[in-house]
């Protein structure tokens, strides 16, 4: 019951958030200089041509009128037509979404595994040189932004020791049997591990660039909470029962220490999704972020709106999932 109410309440606030996002984006991209019509017409177009084309896309109406027309369409599932590609925005965006979802989920997985392992190792070997090393590595990882990591990794593993692909999502010459755009997932389901390998080899470096800063944050926060938990009485009690230090950390400390980290990972994951915009550009990865940059360059207003709304849905969705996970993992929140 409580869970249902939480979800309902969340849906209402989400609707309000999305409306706010829609209004802001809609107004901002119409107020900033540059317009799509100027981009489309060749130099020397007459004023008449410009006026005709402007009217064709409805851009001669007031912003409020445009918003109402667009909003009415959205409510019926029609996000308009891309000005540059002349295709329905919704279909274009949904076609690219899987690429970005796979990239960011892969990056999240890497960050959680690497950060978690570092935190557990650092706790097991606390107050030793190893913990110091982990702290220093974490500090370095955090002080460089993700896109710079991208460039560093391209130089290291794409140029100096070329072990990974540094461009695109998949080798273009490959024959893809996929029916969805979740290539990685589908290659696993179909057991086409040769394709999985090719996809991962493309995805590895961009995902790693996104994962490095997040892994450092997870390592630091989780290690801190673990170390605080290690002083508590139930941990001491488990020690007297014959459990080794490693199993005490894993069994007693981790389930409690993971809660504050989980909240933070949720927030940071939304930043990571935001980070894909630049990382996809750096690695020419055919995802939403790359499309977003092209859309902005071309002033493709309907496409920009569609992408931003989708990102907003993604962010609120992630937050909802985190809240639900938190409630599941923390028995004190489960009842009442």
């Amino acid at each position: 019951m409580a869970l249902l109410r939480t979800i309902l309440l969340r849906l209402v606030t989400t609707a309000v958030t999305l409306l706010g996002v829609a209004v802001i984006v809609f107004v901002v991209i119409r107020v900033v200089p540059g317009n799509p019509i100027a981009m489309m017409l060749p130099p020397g177009a007459t004023g008449e041509d410009i006026a005709r084309l402007t009217a064709l896309y409805g851009l001669d109406k007031s912003i409020l009128q445009q918003f109402l027309i667009w909003g009415a369409g959205v409510l019926q599932g029609d996000f308009g037509t891309s000005i540059t590609a002349r295709q329905p925005v919704l279909a274009m965006v949904l076609a690219r979404l899987p690429a970005t979802l796979e990239l960011s989920t892969f990056a999240l997985l890497m960050a959680v595994l690497a950060g978690g392992a570092a935190a557990l190792t650092g706790t097991r070997l606390r107050e030793t040189k190893v913990e110091g090393g982990i702290d220093i590595a974490g500090g370095m990882a955090l002080s460089v932004p993700d896109f710079l990591w991208g460039l560093v990794l391209i130089l290291l593993f794409g140029v100096l020791v070329p072990v990974f692909h540094i461009s695109g999502r998949v080798t273009p010459s490959l024959d893809l049997p996929f029916i969805t755009n979740f290539y990685l997932f589908e290659s696993l389901v179909r057991l086409r591990l040769d394709l999985t390998l090719d996809l991962v080899s493309h995805m590895f470096l961009p995902a790693l660039s996104l994962a490095i800063p997040l892994a450092a944050i997870i390592a630091q926060l989780l290690k801190q909470s673990l170390k605080e938990t290690m002083h508590l009485d139930y941990v001491t009690l488990a020690r007297t029962q014959g459990y080794s230090e490693a199993s005490v950390i894993w069994r007693e400390a981790l389930p409690n220490a993971v809660l504050p980290t989980l909240t933070l990972v949720g927030v940071q994951f939304t930043f990571l999704i935001g980070g894909t915009v630049i990382i996809e550009r750096v690695f020419s990865y055919e995802g939403l972020g790359n499309m977003a940059i092209d859309a902005v360059i071309n002033r493709d207003l309907p496409l920009i709106q569609g992408i931003v709304i989708l990102f907003a849905v993604l962010f609120t969705g992630v937050n909802l999932v985190v809240d639900l996970m938190y409630a599941t993992l923390n028995p004190r929140l489960r009842h009442g």
């Binding site: 001491t236 009690l237 007297t240």
Partner: peptide
Amino acid sequence: VRVGASCALIPQDPLTALNPS
């Protein structure tokens, strides 16, 4: 292992000596 098998502790504060999760 020896202590775990032959000894036990009754701790001071029952509110903090059980794992909350």
